[in-house]
């Protein structure tokens, strides 16, 4: 489908990666941990290693959840967008194929203090 218009209609997206001065956006969400009202927006350089991303900004944001201390990053399950994903912790975000505005989802089965099952 396309927009109805009287003239050519083609405008630039407002959130192109070149607007972020060398950084990119990564969204991150922890499944079934709803103390956090929405996925996080994290703005980092694409050469950040996955480990530095997880143990740095992501771990800091998750720390206020009672389950945070018990996360085992090595057994956690990951998803990138809609697909299952096995990250290489020592490679950069770019090398892990994590593009600008990609959503990373974290799953920790069995670890769930607050959110009731459906």
């Amino acid at each position: 489908m396309t927009v109805a218009a009287r003239a050519p209609y083609d405008f630039k997206p407002r959130d192109l990666v070149e607007n972020f001065h060398g950084k990119q956006i990564v969204y991150a969400s922890w499944d079934r941990h709803l103390l956090f009202a929405a996925p996080f927006l994290i703005c980092v350089p694409p050469d950040t290693t996955f480990r530095a991303f997880v143990e740095g900004p992501l771990a800091q944001l998750l720390a206020i959840d009672p389950d945070a201390a018990a996360i085992d990053w090595t057994t956690a399950e990951w998803q990138k967008g809609n697909d299952a994903f096995t990250p290489d912790f020592d490679q950069s975000l770019a090398a892990n194929g994590i593009a600008h505005k990609e959503l990373i989802r974290l799953r920790t089965p069995g670890l769930n203090s607050i959110t009731a099952a459906a």
Binding site: A37, P39, F40, L41
Partner: peptide
């Protein structure tokens, strides 16, 4: 409880 993460 304060969430200093920005939201998607």
């Amino acid at each position: 409880f304060k969430n200093f993460g920005l939201a998607k």
